[in-house]
Design a protein around this nucleic acid. Sequence first.
DNA 1: ACCGTAGAGTGAACACCGTTAACAGTTAAC
DNA 2: GTTAACTGTTAACGGTGTTCACTCTACGGT
Lengths: 239, 239
Amino acid sequence: MEFGGSRDRRRAATVAEIKSAARRLLVSGGTAAVGLRAVARELGLTPPALYRYFPSHEALIGALIADLYDELTAALMDLQTTDDEDVDLGARLYLLANGLRDWGLTHPAEFALLFGTAVPSPDAADHEETPGHQAAMRFGSVFKELVAQIWHWKPFPYPPDEVLGSELVAQLTQESEHFGGMPAGAIYLSLTYWTRLYGLICMEIFGQLHWVLPDAAAYFEAQLYEIGQALGLDCPAPE
Amino acid sequence: MEFGGSRDRRRAATVAEIKSAARRLLVSGGTAAVGLRAVARELGLTPPALYRYFPSHEALIGALIADLYDELTAALMDLQTTDDEDVDLGARLYLLANGLRDWGLTHPAEFALLFGTAVPSPDAADHEETPGHQAAMRFGSVFKELVAQIWHWKPFPYPPDEVLGSELVAQLTQESEHFGGMPAGAIYLSLTYWTRLYGLICMEIFGQLHWVLPDAAAYFEAQLYEIGQALGLDCPAPE
DNA sequence: ACCGTAGAGTGAACACCGTTAACAGTTAAC
DNA sequence: GTTAACTGTTAACGGTGTTCACTCTACGGT
């Protein structure tokens, strides 16, 4: 019943070393390079030894994914707080969007592991309890909560229920409690912001914009301005 | 120097059977299930036999990808022509967008192979000459050409160069010849349409919208209306 | 202080994978 | 009719994730 047992501490350290080695391989060789045997090789261990720490290769990858999500989440939250305390909320969202893009550009391998895998997962009852999924939810909350803050700070005009259609309004209203009680139209705009931002960053980082734009930075900037406007923000505002 | 040699015909048939088996495995078991040995097993052959038809497993996958792109391209072009000959061009774009989504929803495994892989490909000089890449270009042209047609048919209002910024305008202008001589602002709107459509469909099919919308059909419809408006179209127009 | 036991690590093995080489049978071409 | 090309085989290599039986070390309880 010892909590600070030196045995446990050693074990935690080894787990950290394993994930560290896995990430090293991920960065240097991409998703395919982070194999169980390769990780073991990196640590000077035999492959079966890793099974003392992770029940399977998939579990190891899952733990790595969860760590990366948490790191990304922390980085984005830092970005919001380290800046001036009472900075404009719209500017915060601008920082968040750019922060996500920057993280992806500077960590393409990690980004691909988090957002590129994209399993169709056709199984219906997939109440994903995996740590990776939970970390992804925490990551999503960062954006969701900021948008809700913005709404309560300076409510933006939103499309009336008539143009969205009753079906969509019903679905969006159902999610109202997760968005701080925002009306359907406002949730729709928030979702649009996220959808556009996410799609844009994925396309840029995964090189699906290369055929028309060798460098998508300027395009991203313009799009960011556009989607910010839809939320009543005029970032990057100045001058 | 025989063209209709029965040997060649037999060979072509075998190639077709191989790709057919590969696709069967893809549909039933996802991307990971279409292995070289599995394909051989499906045909009652030994694995090395496949090397008479494809130089590697990757080449087989590449050929499958090219076929799927061509199939998708053909399906989308059919969708435009089988309908009323002189149908409104805006409605054509609407059909195309919905056609792409429908194809993805009815062929999730194939869609994942085409659009989900998303290799970062950090190598600079990747003038991809692979058949898959060429087929992807042909696929992209379907959309690109229709948008150019729409522009010449009923030019839509576009943002002036000032709001886009000189950097972006320069990049877009460079691509003007590929867009039928459209001005930068119009290319920007076209690119926005594609970016939003592509991102939206990918997110829905890859299940990254499930956490807020269990069924994204209504949301897609609303978004489609919105992005069509940006191009001066009022689809789905009626009543 | 001792012993028992849980944990960490190993080596051998299994089943799978993509790929290569050397070989045999069939079939088309000159 | 002979030769050469084509199609397919078997055997093998190195790689993967994973399991099992085993050793050894070091902590915990008495």
